[in-house]
Simulated assay, not measured.
Amino acid sequence: MKLRKSSAAIATGLVLSLALTACGGDSDDKGGGKIAIGIKFDQPGVGLKTPDGKYVGFDVDVATYVAKELGYDAKDIEWKQTPSAQRETMIANGDVKFIAASYSINDERKQKVSFAGPYFLAHQDLLVRADDTSITEPSSLNSKKLCSVVGSTSAQNVKEKLAPKANLQEQGGYSECLTGLENKAVDALTTDDSILAGFAAQKQHQGKFKLVGLRLSDERYGIGLKKGDTKLQGDINKALEKMKSDGSWEKFVKANFGPANYKNEPAPEITEKG
């Protein structure tokens, strides 16, 4: 009697094990099911959640294309907001599969996460009020009120290298900085020119702001993923190469930045490889 019960238990265990294997397997690598992708929700032209709940922008288009190449339809994507200061944590915790959120590749971040790409080259610039003629170069920011977001490389670049006497104010999102700029609570907003162009091109902001036109840094946007995941890194790089070669990259750039007359750089060479 005991032998029969034991044999039955083993058989049941084997059936369950096989069933779980069939359901799970390596679906993460081959698509299927849902995929969580991190983007920005507050960057017009780059990554934006609209009032009606849609997600638009260059990073959104790129991430959707990459996800499709990984085997996921657009309806399978769960978009997650990833503030600058939380990107590495969300990747490490497995909250997202990958992040496409104006995520500049640098050595400090590469200690914590891996990158695929880059897929875009932006430059740090300044956004000021349209009638402001006092800010023409980085040193003009000394003793001025400068706004950026917590965790951004742009803010530290200005404070440490370009205008150490600037009064830096860090906010949770760029929209707060923009409100401060419009209300004259701050004198300039600094981040990548692609993001600034997206804000300036919005209908409600047209004519209010202008880019100073400085190229203060090179910002290579990469897709962030779990450190050491060379399989996913390689798959994403293949998708990015295909996106460039089939004309989709150029199409996405024109659709999202064209209205701002933004002069973008050509698609960069992919350098982040395992």
Rank of each mutant, 00 (worst) to 15 (best):
K210H: 02
D132H: 13
I91D: 09
D28M: 09
V128H: 01
L178G: 11
M1Y: 10
T64V: 10
V56T: 08
G180W: 02
S148W: 00
T230H: 11
K251E: 14
F199S: 03
V212L: 04
Q169T: 10
K161M: 14
K2E: 12
I195T: 15
I35P: 01
G247F: 08
K145H: 10
L3P: 12
N264R: 08
A155M: 02
F257S: 15
G228N: 14
T12C: 15
A9K: 15
F98N: 11
P44N: 13
T230Q: 07
L141D: 13
G180N: 08
K110Q: 13
S175H: 09
L20W: 04
G25P: 06
K251H: 11
S194C: 06
A130G: 06
A92T: 12
E137M: 08
R109N: 03
L121K: 12
S140H: 09
I135R: 00
T89F: 11
T190C: 01
Y119W: 10
T133V: 15
M90E: 10
R4H: 12
E69L: 11
P118D: 04
Y119T: 11
D246V: 09
N256P: 08
T230S: 14
A85F: 05
A36H: 07
F41G: 10
T153A: 06
T64G: 15
F199K: 00
D218G: 08
S84C: 03
D218M: 05
K208Q: 14
A101E: 01
Q86T: 12
Q124W: 03
V113I: 13
A185I: 11
L3D: 14
C147D: 14
K226N: 06
F120H: 12
D125M: 03
Y103Q: 08
G38C: 07
T179Y: 05
S152Y: 00
T50M: 03
V149F: 06
L168R: 03
C23W: 00
G258K: 02
R109T: 11
K5H: 15
K273V: 09
A260C: 12
S248K: 13
A185V: 09
K273P: 05
S104R: 09
C177R: 06
I195P: 11
P268R: 00
I223V: 06
M243Y: 01
I105P: 05
Y65D: 15
V158Q: 13
Y221T: 07
K34V: 07
F199H: 01
S152F: 00
A188E: 01
G25I: 02
L127V: 07
A116C: 06
D29A: 10
G172L: 07
W79N: 03
E269Q: 15
A130M: 02
L146M: 02
N183G: 13
